[in-house]
Design a protein around this nucleic acid. Structure first.
Lengths: 78, 78
DNA sequence: GGAAATTTGTACGTATGTATC
DNA sequence: GGATACATACGTACAAATTTC
């Protein structure tokens, strides 16, 4: 579950890609909850604001759906 | 050229919409330069980081194109 | 109805990196 | 090297929505 971060590419993008891979391989199933900003910042050792940007990007690309007060969830396939 | 900001909707979105309108009405013609973060923050009385978010959104939606070290330009019609 | 905790969203500010002129 | 301008990363504070007590 560990992701090595390199310095040549944006951290927020690498985190978004890591989550995207986990969606693809079923680690985070459709409708299931994705780790939130606080959890991601702890796991990757990054700022919450950076984790938020990664999640916002996944939302903008339709891979997840966010619900205020609840969390972030894998978008239903389709 | 003045835009009234209300508190019910995100500032970054209102700024993005204002720029979008100016693109549509020809104020900022295709290929022309759009005011940058510093200019927008001064005009609207907002933080540069908020102006940056508005510009990033316009870039993500294909309305403008940004060039590092140069500025932000209206995307060619298409 | 209200208070607290959790979680996402917005806004601001600062520092640093990268690219162009 | 210096000035300009966008990009990334961090941190802080508060707002908004939901859940739980």
């Amino acid at each position: 579950m560990r992701v090595d971060l390199d310095r040549s590419r944006p951290v927020w993008r690498q985190v978004a890609e890591a989550i995207s891979r986990r969606i693809d391989d079923g680690t985070y199933p459709p409708g299931g909850r994705v780790p939130g900003m606080v959890e991601l910042s702890a796991e990757f050792g990054i700022a919450a604001s950076t984790a938020q940007k990664a999640l916002a990007h996944l939302r903008d690309t339709g891979q997840v759906r966010t619900e205020l007060g609840l969390g972030t969830f894998v978008a239903d396939a389709g």
